[in-house]
Amino acid sequence: MKKNIKFISLLLSLIIVFIILLKGLNVSKDYSNEKLNSKIDFSFKVKKLFNDEVINIEDLFNQEDLSVVNIWASWCVPCKDEHPNLMQLKDMNIKVVGINYKDNPKNAKNFLNLLGNPYSEIITDKDGTKSIEFGAIGVPETIVINGKTKSIIKKFIGPLSNENIIEIKSLINEKT
């Protein structure tokens, strides 16, 4: 009897392990921190791309509302792919703050002249440290920030798709 209980409990635990590992197969191996509700410390200063003016990062964001931040670079190929979608956001009157990631200012300006400028403001991030303040891992990346709680509410890693644009729009409409 005792032996049977041992056997059955061992069998059951093996089955549980099996199920967990089976589920583990479907878990994405890529990094994502969508669930994270991380706060941003808005106390650092940044430089604007076009006029080299140094401002507090705080001043760029609406304290009451949601803001959209897009990290991009002229050397980044997927950034070109998502560019039309960003222009779409501009057409919808959604303000996007651009962070120019590890880029040559000249190339960045050329890039915008050629493809259009979807950003309401652009700041530079020469060494990539500003992007880390926003919890980014690379380019392109788009982040929706709640100005009131100073936290990230949504993050899109990689180029924005059409669905993402709709999602951003509905997020912002929800709020207002």
């Binding site: 590890k102 060494d127 990539g128 440290t129 992007s131 880390i132 891992i137 690379g138």
Partner: peptide, 13 residues
Amino acid sequence: SDFAISMKTVVKN
């Protein structure tokens, strides 16, 4: 990688 280089700078800062 770019990410790692920036991260090193952040840690240093």
